[in-house]
Amino acid sequence: MNTTAKRIYYIPYMLWILLFVIAPVALIVYQSFFNLDHQATIQNYVTYLTSSTYLRMTLNSFWYAFLITLFTVLISYPAALFLNQLKHKDFWLLLIILPTWINLLLKAYAFIGIFAQNGSVNQFLGFIGIGPKQILFTDFSFIFVATYIEIPFMILPIYNAIAEIDPALLTASRDLGATNWQTLIRVILPLTRKGITAGVQAVFIPSLSLFMLTRLIGGNRVITLGTAIEEHFLTTMNWGMGSTIGVVLIIMMFISMALTGEHKRKRKEIDTGATKE
């Protein structure tokens, strides 16, 4: 193939990167150095780093994202293990993926109906004599719904990682004396580490900037960085401050990518007398 033809194939990709990745990021960074009066300044960053409100919000975002990720892993890992043992596993996996095809807002509204004062959960609680309770607009409902929404994104990579394990390895582990539990801890878990980190990246990073759910399900009691950005852009019209938080989010994403990314294995010894085959 000649080089001009190759260049033509680059065009859509280059346009995409330029228009939807580089340009927006550049604009956000640019915007973050202006105050409300359109004067170039680093005041926004100073405010962010010295204000306890913003720092608390940052910690909040981290904390909630951490909780959502944790519960997602705790539910998804056993689920993925279980799915892999089923006969028609692809079909059951499809059922789990199916809800991701439905719009996030629709699902959020559905949960409002379920968790509301006169919703089905409270009707049931009333029926067994312990309700109704305030469920909507609590930390619980926020984390519950966020976890529900993120679970497919966690199950999929873990499921794939488990499916890729050579069954002979599990047989070998049993043969060498390991119980089923020891096989899980010492063979299956380490071999699916990549699947878990991929899932954590797919869940933790988007969870940092959740904002729709914080409002609809969390009732604005849960304020994360995502909520703050929305407020600055749409309510206070302080685009500079909003952009600054955006930049902070981008940096945090890179940090969590670096933390969960594949590390080079430490070992490198020199073998001198390697036997030649």
Binding site: A168, T171, S173, R174, L176, L191
Partner: peptide
């Protein structure tokens, strides 16, 4: 159960643990 039998197997494609080095593979049991 298999893990309680005083029997070990060498498998057709060896079934070595790819996440462990030579020493840890041998030390597994």
């Amino acid at each position: 159960p298999p893990n309680k039998r005083r029997v070990n197997t060498i498998f057709q494609n060896y079934a070595l643990f790819p996440h462990l080095n030579v020493f840890d593979n041998v030390a597994f049991g």
